[in-house]
Amino acid sequence: MSCARWASLVAGALTSAALFAMPVQALPETAIVLNSDEASMSVVDRQSMTEIERIPVGREPHHLILTPDGKDLVVASTVTNELLFLDPVTARERKRVRNIVDPYQLGYSPDGKWFVTAAYRLNHVDIYEAKDLRLVKRLPLHSLPSHLTFSADSNFVYFTVQGSNQVAALDLVKQEIVWTIDVGEAPAGIHVFPDQKRLLVGLTGEDAAVVVDLATRGVSKRIVTGKGAHNIFKMPADDKRVLITNRVEGSMSIIDLEKLEVVDTIKVAGGPDDVDFSPDGKIAWVTQRWRRRVAAVELSTRRILGTVLVGRSPHGIYINGPHTVSRSVLPPPERSDATAATKR
Protein backbone atom coordinates (compact mmCIF):
# COMPACT_ATOMS: atom_id res chain seq x y z
CA MET A 1 0.00 0.00 0.00
CA SER A 2 1.36 3.40 -0.95
CA CYS A 3 2.20 6.10 1.55
CA ALA A 4 -0.56 8.25 0.12
CA ARG A 5 -3.12 5.47 0.59
CA TRP A 6 -1.93 4.94 4.18
CA ALA A 7 -2.15 8.65 4.82
CA SER A 8 -5.68 8.83 3.47
CA LEU A 9 -6.78 5.83 5.51
CA VAL A 10 -5.29 7.31 8.67
CA ALA A 11 -6.92 10.63 7.89
CA GLY A 12 -10.23 8.85 7.34
CA ALA A 13 -9.93 6.96 10.60
CA LEU A 14 -9.06 10.13 12.51
CA THR A 15 -12.03 11.92 10.96
CA SER A 16 -14.29 9.05 11.95
CA ALA A 17 -12.95 9.06 15.48
CA ALA A 18 -13.42 12.81 15.71
CA LEU A 19 -17.00 12.54 14.50
CA PHE A 20 -17.73 9.84 17.03
CA ALA A 21 -16.23 11.88 19.80
CA MET A 22 -18.84 14.60 19.19
CA PRO A 23 -21.06 15.13 22.20
CA VAL A 24 -24.42 13.97 20.90
CA GLN A 25 -26.26 15.71 23.71
CA ALA A 26 -25.24 19.03 22.17
CA LEU A 27 -26.79 18.27 18.80
CA PRO A 28 -29.87 20.30 17.93
CA GLU A 29 -32.77 17.95 17.57
CA THR A 30 -33.48 18.75 13.98
CA ALA A 31 -33.70 17.08 10.62
CA ILE A 32 -32.99 18.85 7.34
CA VAL A 33 -35.33 17.79 4.55
CA LEU A 34 -34.92 18.71 0.87
CA ASN A 35 -38.19 19.61 -0.84
CA SER A 36 -37.29 18.40 -4.31
CA ASP A 37 -40.32 19.80 -6.11
CA GLU A 38 -39.64 23.24 -4.73
CA ALA A 39 -36.56 25.31 -4.12
CA SER A 40 -36.46 24.91 -0.38
CA MET A 41 -35.43 22.77 2.53
CA SER A 42 -37.38 22.23 5.71
CA VAL A 43 -35.85 22.24 9.15
CA VAL A 44 -37.85 19.85 11.31
CA ASP A 45 -37.82 19.78 15.10
CA ARG A 46 -37.67 16.08 15.87
CA GLN A 47 -38.94 16.50 19.42
CA SER A 48 -42.05 18.56 18.73
CA MET A 49 -42.52 16.93 15.30
CA THR A 50 -43.03 20.24 13.56
CA GLU A 51 -41.45 22.11 10.70
CA ILE A 52 -39.76 25.07 12.32
CA GLU A 53 -38.23 26.73 9.29
CA ARG A 54 -38.30 26.58 5.52
CA ILE A 55 -35.12 27.88 3.95
CA PRO A 56 -34.80 28.78 0.25
CA VAL A 57 -32.16 26.87 -1.69
CA GLY A 58 -31.63 26.27 -5.42
CA ARG A 59 -34.20 24.58 -7.68
CA GLU A 60 -35.04 20.91 -7.25
CA PRO A 61 -32.72 19.93 -4.44
CA HIS A 62 -32.64 16.12 -4.30
CA HIS A 63 -29.65 14.85 -2.38
CA LEU A 64 -27.07 15.94 0.13
CA ILE A 65 -23.77 14.74 1.54
CA LEU A 66 -21.30 15.74 4.24
CA THR A 67 -17.86 16.89 3.19
CA PRO A 68 -15.12 14.39 4.14
CA ASP A 69 -14.18 16.45 7.19
CA GLY A 70 -17.83 16.52 8.26
CA LYS A 71 -17.77 20.29 8.60
CA ASP A 72 -20.12 21.15 5.75
CA LEU A 73 -23.35 19.69 4.51
CA VAL A 74 -23.53 19.91 0.72
CA VAL A 75 -27.00 20.34 -0.77
CA ALA A 76 -27.19 19.82 -4.54
CA SER A 77 -29.73 21.75 -6.58
CA THR A 78 -30.17 19.98 -9.88
CA VAL A 79 -31.91 22.66 -11.92
CA THR A 80 -29.90 25.63 -10.66
CA ASN A 81 -26.64 23.73 -11.23
CA GLU A 82 -25.27 24.65 -7.86
CA LEU A 83 -24.06 23.28 -4.55
CA LEU A 84 -24.97 24.91 -1.31
CA PHE A 85 -22.56 24.41 1.57
CA LEU A 86 -24.31 24.57 4.94
CA ASP A 87 -23.37 24.39 8.56
CA PRO A 88 -24.68 20.87 9.29
CA VAL A 89 -25.73 21.90 12.80
CA THR A 90 -27.48 25.21 12.18
CA ALA A 91 -28.36 24.76 8.49
CA ARG A 92 -26.99 28.24 7.78
CA GLU A 93 -25.48 28.86 4.36
CA ARG A 94 -21.70 29.10 4.17
CA LYS A 95 -21.11 29.28 0.44
CA ARG A 96 -22.59 28.51 -2.95
CA VAL A 97 -20.68 26.84 -5.76
CA ARG A 98 -22.11 27.41 -9.24
CA ASN A 99 -21.67 25.49 -12.50
CA ILE A 100 -21.92 22.00 -11.11
CA VAL A 101 -24.11 20.62 -13.88
CA ASP A 102 -27.23 18.70 -12.81
CA PRO A 103 -25.85 17.35 -9.53
CA TYR A 104 -28.56 14.78 -8.85
CA GLN A 105 -26.61 12.25 -6.81
CA LEU A 106 -23.30 13.13 -5.26
CA GLY A 107 -20.58 11.66 -3.12
CA TYR A 108 -16.99 12.02 -1.97
CA SER A 109 -14.61 9.11 -2.42
CA PRO A 110 -13.66 7.59 0.94
CA ASP A 111 -10.09 8.87 0.51
CA GLY A 112 -11.53 12.36 0.22
CA LYS A 113 -9.85 12.98 -3.12
CA TRP A 114 -12.77 12.96 -5.58
CA PHE A 115 -16.21 14.46 -5.67
CA VAL A 116 -18.47 12.58 -8.08
CA THR A 117 -21.94 13.49 -9.33
CA ALA A 118 -24.53 11.70 -11.45
CA ALA A 119 -26.42 13.99 -13.82
CA TYR A 120 -29.66 12.06 -13.92
CA ARG A 121 -31.39 14.14 -16.57
CA LEU A 122 -28.36 14.94 -18.65
CA ASN A 123 -27.00 11.40 -18.90
CA HIS A 124 -23.46 11.87 -17.73
CA VAL A 125 -21.30 11.51 -14.64
CA ASP A 126 -18.76 14.08 -13.51
CA ILE A 127 -15.54 13.66 -11.57
CA TYR A 128 -14.35 16.74 -9.68
CA GLU A 129 -11.30 17.37 -7.55
CA ALA A 130 -12.80 17.33 -4.06
CA LYS A 131 -10.57 20.11 -2.76
CA ASP A 132 -11.55 22.82 -5.25
CA LEU A 133 -14.44 21.25 -7.20
CA ARG A 134 -12.56 21.56 -10.46
CA LEU A 135 -14.13 19.37 -13.14
CA VAL A 136 -11.63 16.69 -14.10
CA LYS A 137 -13.68 14.45 -16.32
CA ARG A 138 -17.18 14.17 -17.75
CA LEU A 139 -18.27 10.75 -18.93
CA PRO A 140 -21.50 10.05 -20.81
CA LEU A 141 -23.66 7.40 -19.18
CA HIS A 142 -26.99 6.69 -20.88
CA SER A 143 -29.59 6.77 -19.65
CA LEU A 144 -30.60 8.26 -16.33
CA PRO A 145 -27.53 7.62 -14.13
CA SER A 146 -29.17 7.54 -10.75
CA HIS A 147 -27.53 6.47 -7.49
CA LEU A 148 -23.86 5.92 -6.75
CA THR A 149 -21.60 4.31 -4.18
CA PHE A 150 -17.83 3.96 -3.76
CA SER A 151 -15.62 0.97 -3.12
CA ALA A 152 -13.84 1.30 0.23
CA ASP A 153 -10.46 1.65 -1.48
CA SER A 154 -11.79 4.60 -3.51
CA ASN A 155 -10.83 2.89 -6.76
CA PHE A 156 -14.35 2.46 -8.11
CA VAL A 157 -17.68 4.25 -8.19
CA TYR A 158 -20.67 2.07 -8.97
CA PHE A 159 -23.70 3.70 -10.56
CA THR A 160 -27.19 2.48 -11.19
CA VAL A 161 -28.32 3.50 -14.67
CA GLN A 162 -32.06 3.64 -14.27
CA GLY A 163 -33.09 4.16 -17.88
CA SER A 164 -31.01 1.32 -19.32
CA ASN A 165 -31.53 -1.12 -16.43
CA GLN A 166 -27.82 -1.41 -15.72
CA VAL A 167 -25.11 -1.01 -13.14
CA ALA A 168 -21.94 0.69 -14.35
CA ALA A 169 -18.49 0.71 -12.80
CA LEU A 170 -16.33 3.81 -13.07
CA ASP A 171 -12.65 3.21 -12.47
CA LEU A 172 -11.44 6.30 -10.64
CA VAL A 173 -7.81 5.55 -11.39
CA LYS A 174 -8.32 5.22 -15.16
CA GLN A 175 -11.24 7.67 -15.00
CA GLU A 176 -13.36 5.69 -17.40
CA ILE A 177 -16.41 3.46 -17.30
CA VAL A 178 -14.90 -0.02 -17.28
CA TRP A 179 -17.99 -2.19 -17.37
CA THR A 180 -21.77 -2.18 -17.37
CA ILE A 181 -24.10 -5.08 -16.68
CA ASP A 182 -27.84 -5.61 -16.90
CA VAL A 183 -29.49 -6.03 -13.52
CA GLY A 184 -33.24 -5.57 -13.90
CA GLU A 185 -35.92 -2.93 -14.28
CA ALA A 186 -35.10 0.63 -13.16
CA PRO A 187 -32.22 0.07 -10.71
CA ALA A 188 -31.88 2.82 -8.10
CA GLY A 189 -30.26 2.41 -4.66
CA ILE A 190 -26.87 0.72 -4.58
CA HIS A 191 -24.82 -0.56 -1.65
CA VAL A 192 -21.41 -2.23 -1.41
CA PHE A 193 -21.31 -5.31 0.84
CA PRO A 194 -18.82 -5.12 3.72
CA ASP A 195 -16.69 -7.78 1.98
CA GLN A 196 -16.36 -5.39 -1.01
CA LYS A 197 -17.10 -8.30 -3.33
CA ARG A 198 -20.77 -7.75 -4.00
CA LEU A 199 -23.32 -5.00 -4.58
CA LEU A 200 -26.93 -4.83 -3.48
CA VAL A 201 -29.14 -3.00 -5.98
CA GLY A 202 -32.77 -1.93 -5.49
CA LEU A 203 -34.96 -2.43 -8.57
CA THR A 204 -37.58 0.31 -8.58
CA GLY A 205 -39.29 -1.14 -11.63
CA GLU A 206 -39.68 -4.49 -9.88
CA ASP A 207 -40.32 -5.71 -6.36
CA ALA A 208 -36.85 -6.85 -5.42
CA ALA A 209 -33.23 -6.11 -4.73
CA VAL A 210 -30.54 -8.08 -6.53
CA VAL A 211 -27.06 -9.11 -5.46
CA VAL A 212 -24.38 -8.37 -8.06
CA ASP A 213 -21.21 -10.43 -7.80
CA LEU A 214 -18.29 -8.17 -8.71
CA ALA A 215 -15.99 -11.06 -9.65
CA THR A 216 -18.37 -12.67 -12.14
CA ARG A 217 -20.19 -9.41 -12.93
CA GLY A 218 -23.51 -11.13 -12.78
CA VAL A 219 -26.65 -11.18 -10.66
CA SER A 220 -26.25 -13.96 -8.13
CA LYS A 221 -29.38 -13.56 -6.02
CA ARG A 222 -32.76 -11.88 -6.12
CA ILE A 223 -34.36 -10.84 -2.84
CA VAL A 224 -38.05 -9.93 -2.99
CA THR A 225 -38.70 -6.86 -0.85
CA GLY A 226 -41.72 -4.96 -2.15
CA LYS A 227 -42.93 -3.08 -5.24
CA GLY A 228 -40.72 -0.18 -6.22
CA ALA A 229 -37.64 -1.30 -4.26
CA HIS A 230 -35.65 1.87 -4.16
CA ASN A 231 -32.92 3.24 -1.92
CA ILE A 232 -30.64 1.29 0.45
CA PHE A 233 -29.19 2.39 3.78
CA LYS A 234 -26.85 0.70 6.21
CA MET A 235 -28.57 0.14 9.54
CA PRO A 236 -27.16 2.09 12.47
CA ALA A 237 -24.13 0.41 14.05
CA ASP A 238 -24.75 -2.71 12.03
CA ASP A 239 -22.79 -3.69 8.93
CA LYS A 240 -24.78 -6.87 8.47
CA ARG A 241 -28.18 -5.39 7.83
CA VAL A 242 -29.50 -2.76 5.45
CA LEU A 243 -32.81 -1.03 5.12
CA ILE A 244 -34.42 -0.68 1.71
CA THR A 245 -37.38 1.56 0.94
CA ASN A 246 -40.13 0.18 -1.30
CA ARG A 247 -41.67 3.26 -2.84
CA VAL A 248 -44.70 1.72 -4.51
CA GLU A 249 -45.39 -0.93 -1.88
CA GLY A 250 -45.30 1.71 0.85
CA SER A 251 -42.90 -0.15 3.09
CA MET A 252 -39.29 -0.60 4.17
CA SER A 253 -37.59 -3.98 4.27
CA ILE A 254 -34.66 -4.91 6.46
CA ILE A 255 -32.29 -7.25 4.66
CA ASP A 256 -29.76 -9.48 6.40
CA LEU A 257 -26.65 -9.32 4.22
CA GLU A 258 -25.35 -12.66 5.46
CA LYS A 259 -28.55 -14.64 5.03
CA LEU A 260 -29.50 -12.59 1.97
CA GLU A 261 -33.12 -12.44 3.00
CA VAL A 262 -35.66 -9.98 4.30
CA VAL A 263 -35.81 -10.26 8.07
CA ASP A 264 -38.36 -7.55 8.74
CA THR A 265 -40.80 -5.25 7.00
CA ILE A 266 -42.13 -1.90 8.19
CA LYS A 267 -45.16 -0.21 6.64
CA VAL A 268 -44.56 3.41 5.65
CA ALA A 269 -47.07 4.74 3.13
CA GLY A 270 -46.73 7.63 0.73
CA GLY A 271 -43.73 6.68 -1.41
CA PRO A 272 -40.96 6.22 1.18
CA ASP A 273 -37.65 7.28 -0.34
CA ASP A 274 -34.65 8.51 1.64
CA VAL A 275 -33.84 7.74 5.26
CA ASP A 276 -31.58 9.06 7.98
CA PHE A 277 -31.18 7.88 11.55
CA SER A 278 -31.47 9.66 14.88
CA PRO A 279 -28.25 10.18 16.85
CA ASP A 280 -29.11 7.22 19.09
CA GLY A 281 -29.77 5.03 16.05
CA LYS A 282 -33.21 4.07 17.28
CA ILE A 283 -35.41 6.06 14.97
CA ALA A 284 -35.45 6.09 11.17
CA TRP A 285 -36.69 9.33 9.64
CA VAL A 286 -38.17 8.64 6.23
CA THR A 287 -39.19 11.04 3.48
CA GLN A 288 -42.65 10.30 2.07
CA ARG A 289 -42.39 11.71 -1.45
CA TRP A 290 -46.08 11.64 -2.32
CA ARG A 291 -47.47 12.74 1.02
CA ARG A 292 -45.26 15.80 1.48
CA ARG A 293 -44.25 14.45 4.88
CA VAL A 294 -41.44 12.84 6.81
CA ALA A 295 -42.22 9.94 9.11
CA ALA A 296 -40.40 8.95 12.29
CA VAL A 297 -40.25 5.18 12.66
CA GLU A 298 -39.12 3.53 15.89
CA LEU A 299 -36.96 0.66 14.69
CA SER A 300 -37.41 -1.57 17.75
CA THR A 301 -41.22 -1.51 17.62
CA ARG A 302 -41.67 -0.83 13.86
CA ARG A 303 -44.14 1.83 14.97
CA ILE A 304 -44.59 5.21 13.25
CA LEU A 305 -44.19 7.74 16.05
CA GLY A 306 -45.51 10.59 13.96
CA THR A 307 -45.23 12.47 10.68
CA VAL A 308 -44.33 16.07 9.89
CA LEU A 309 -45.71 18.11 6.99
CA VAL A 310 -42.90 19.62 4.89
CA GLY A 311 -42.59 20.90 1.30
CA ARG A 312 -43.45 19.20 -1.98
CA SER A 313 -41.86 15.87 -2.80
CA PRO A 314 -39.43 15.63 0.13
CA HIS A 315 -36.39 13.63 -0.93
CA GLY A 316 -32.98 13.84 0.80
CA ILE A 317 -32.87 14.01 4.59
CA TYR A 318 -30.06 14.69 7.03
CA ILE A 319 -29.81 14.26 10.77
CA ASN A 320 -26.67 15.51 12.42
CA GLY A 321 -25.22 12.67 14.42
CA PRO A 322 -23.06 9.57 14.36
CA HIS A 323 -25.51 7.44 12.43
CA THR A 324 -26.21 9.76 9.54
CA VAL A 325 -26.12 8.04 6.16
CA SER A 326 -24.74 11.21 4.58
CA ARG A 327 -21.22 10.71 5.81
CA SER A 328 -18.65 10.13 3.10
CA VAL A 329 -16.18 8.46 5.42
CA LEU A 330 -18.11 5.88 7.40
CA PRO A 331 -17.05 5.16 10.95
CA PRO A 332 -16.19 1.55 11.83
CA PRO A 333 -19.19 -0.22 13.43
CA GLU A 334 -17.39 -1.13 16.65
CA ARG A 335 -17.02 2.57 17.44
CA SER A 336 -20.73 3.21 17.35
CA ASP A 337 -22.44 4.38 20.48
CA ALA A 338 -26.06 3.42 20.40
CA THR A 339 -26.70 4.07 24.04
CA ALA A 340 -25.15 7.48 24.47
CA ALA A 341 -28.17 9.46 23.53
CA THR A 342 -31.89 9.20 23.53
CA LYS A 343 -32.59 11.86 20.96
CA ARG A 344 -34.89 11.21 18.07
Partner: peptide, 20 residues
Protein backbone atom coordinates in the same frame (compact mmCIF):
# COMPACT_ATOMS: atom_id res chain seq x y z
CA UNK B 1 -55.21 15.10 -2.21
CA UNK B 2 -52.39 14.77 -4.73
CA UNK B 3 -50.52 12.43 -2.36
CA UNK B 4 -53.53 10.15 -1.99
CA UNK B 5 -54.08 10.08 -5.73
CA UNK B 6 -50.40 9.28 -6.33
CA UNK B 7 -50.71 6.32 -4.01
CA UNK B 8 -53.40 5.00 -6.34
CA UNK B 9 -51.76 5.92 -9.65
CA UNK B 10 -48.08 5.07 -9.04
CA UNK B 11 -48.78 1.35 -8.49
CA UNK B 12 -50.55 1.34 -11.88
CA UNK B 13 -47.53 3.01 -13.47
CA UNK B 14 -45.37 0.34 -11.83
CA UNK B 15 -47.68 -2.45 -12.96
CA UNK B 16 -47.55 -1.38 -16.58
CA UNK B 17 -43.77 -1.02 -16.53
CA UNK B 18 -43.79 2.75 -17.06
CA UNK B 19 -41.29 3.52 -14.31
CA UNK B 20 -39.41 6.01 -16.50
Amino acid sequence: LQGRLLEIVQPLIHRFGLTE
